[in-house]
Write a protein that binds this DNA or RNA. Structure first.
Lengths: 127, 127
DNA sequence: CAGCATCCTGCGTGATACTG
DNA sequence: CAGTATCACGCAGGATGCTG
């Protein structure tokens, strides 16, 4: 099965998936975005909940994750271009279709890892 | 830093999930194991299919992934202790419960990433 | 407020050689 | 056959400081 040329060698959706969500925050970001658009700062704040409180997220990191997600087509960047900068990130259609997948993961994790509901409030996988 | 606490701070199953499958081959390994136990060499060979043919997998890497998966409780190591070494790896109960999750991932990936049918044959998410 | 520029570090990953 | 040992490298990711 000669593969195309530039086509990544993965050959398996799983590899692409792993690459797409590589990074500590990507899944969290998508998940947090499921309830609606969020601003940069809101995402950042949301990421801090449930994490080690002491660790602030480097802008560089978050920025990169956001950009990667955008280029992956999971989220969409909306720049309002106003004086006090305002940028919102929202899920694309593709991103929304990905939410259930994360739900499955969370569900499994909750059952088999028993990682405590904790920080999330209670919006675990119930909705 | 200081993440060796008993109670992980993540607060979210997703983080644990990511950590558990961190590594390029872990998901592939579990997936390949779904059809039954495999020996070290078989896993290695199986991993090469669909990958860049040129890249051999370093034993050190595979070994570590296997060990990590074992410690994660997803797979079980069975050493026959015979002269020509023979070791089989098989999914644990937990590992088997994880297969459907991978199936969902593969399913999503196949639809939204259209990453080619892969070399997996076609037993995508059907079983 | 929402980023980008720069430096630095740990570890995941690959390659090679050796052993039980 | 099934690993372990060692060396080296690239990149994710954290910490600061600065800008439009």
């Amino acid at each position: 099965m000669a593969r195309s040329k530039a086509a990544p060698a993965c050959g398996c959706p799983v590899a692409a998936f792993q690459k797409m969500i590589s990074g500590k925050y990507k899944l969290r970001i998508v998940w947090d975005l499921k309830d609606g658009p969020l601003r940069y700062g809101e995402i950042r704040t949301g990421l801090l909940r449930g994490s080690d409180g002491s660790a602030e997220i480097a802008p560089r990191v978050l920025s990169r994750e956001l950009k990667a997600l955008t280029e992956s087509g999971l989220i969409d960047r909306r720049d309002f271009g106003v004086v006090p900068p305002k940028v919102e990130y929202r899920l694309t259609r593709k991103g929304k279709s990905f939410v259930p997948v994360i739900a499955v993961i969370r569900n499994w994790g909750t059952r088999h890892l028993a990682e405590a509901g904790s920080g999330e409030g209670l919006g675990i996988a119930a909705e």
